[in-house]
Design a protein around this nucleic acid. Structure first.
Lengths: 191, 191
DNA sequence: TTCGTTGTGTACTAGTAAGTACAGAATAAG
DNA sequence: CTTATTCTGTACTTACTAGTACACAACGAA
């Protein structure tokens, strides 16, 4: 009973994600989210809590989306090299800005000194840990593809570093050819 | 003639750098810089202009400092491999947080969506271009050290990406052993 | 000492943004 | 239809912050 909600919370999180991604947490006002989503502030507060809680939900949802895609990409029945190359290549649109958004919401948030809330840091840390674990697991499983002495753990971390670097530098609007060249060169570590 | 300034502008820029670095541009209020430096707002405005102009001066000064250090490090009369390893290794304290500050002010600023001012982006872009140019020049000069087919231009860019990735992930408080391991692995591209 | 000039500190203005009170609308149950 | 309940929209409060007006202090010059 009682009056039903007039909006889909997931739609609002999607819109909020776009706004937060583009402008950053601090610079985004709830009035802007209200304007973009058509949902008034009291409804936002009732549905998601305060601005921090809303952002945390947005970020968790973002993380889940990328992790799901990473799982699918890295589970493909192709050589680990190829799966990982596809995973890295999948970020190119976010480096060159084809998808409208640039860089990575998670990395943008991690480098934002104002977001030093414990919960946010934990969410980002968990995300990074899981992503690296997917890479590590795949590299260990297909160890046979690689040379003697290949270290899947260090390599997984190196790939995470390259991935973070590409998305951090995405804000410079790099040419996608250069991004591809870097990926190619880094793939030579998987041998 | 007239009353002399009661503070050294460079000291204030140094203090402002620390505050901006720690909290980010948006989250830092001029009142905080006043509190940290002991210089009142009207004096800050008279000396540096508004908040944006102050931040731009802080950022330029930061860039100059790192570029100077990079020039010195990369000009050393050692093999290019060794010079570049030392350059990368020099960032480890900013990855593990030994110096109090984490990550890189420039990268933090680049990933901050609220800083979409043309001048700031230009400053960051110029910085990245010069840094990469230092690497590229050194790699080209010592090309003889490396294998046939070695590409100094792509490699310089890859090193920039790794550098950015390490400093972006610095906010996760990584173990410095893992940072070293990544640097070691990436150095294997210089062969 | 006196004056012109420039820096300093206090106290203010104006604008913005987070969060909320409250009146009214929309629903299901009885 | 009536009522209890939950959501919605307007309008408000509160707090903070960028930027400034103004009176005063500190100096060099004459």
């Amino acid at each position: 009973m009682a009056r039903p909600r007039s909006f889909d919370p997931d739609d609002v999180l999607e819109i909020a994600r776009q706004v937060f991604w583009q402008k950053g947490f601090q610079a985004t006002s709830l009035d802007e989210i209200t304007a973009a989503s058509g949902v008034a502030k009291p409804s936002l507060y009732a549905a998601f809590g305060d601005k921090n809680a809303l952002f945390l939900k947005v970020l968790d949802r973002y993380h889940d989306g990328i992790l799901g895609w990473a799982e699918r990409t890295l589970a493909q029945p192709v050589p680990a090299r190829e799966a990982i190359r596809q995973w890295l290549t999948g970020f190119i649109p976010y480096c060159s800005g084809e998808k409208g958004q640039r860089g990575c919401l998670s990395i943008n948030s991690a480098t934002d000194g104002s977001l030093d809330q414990a919960e946010l840091r934990r969410s980002i840390e968990r995300y990074n840990r899981r992503l690296e674990e997917l890479l590590r697991t795949r590299l260990r499983a297909d160890r046979a593809e690689f040379r003697k002495g290949f270290d899947p753990d260090v390599t997984a971390h190196t790939i995470m570093v390259v991935h973070a670097g590409l998305l951090a530098l995405a804000h410079q609007r790099p040419d996608s050819k250069r991004v591809k060249a870097v990926i190619d060169q880094v793939m030579s570590l998987l041998a």
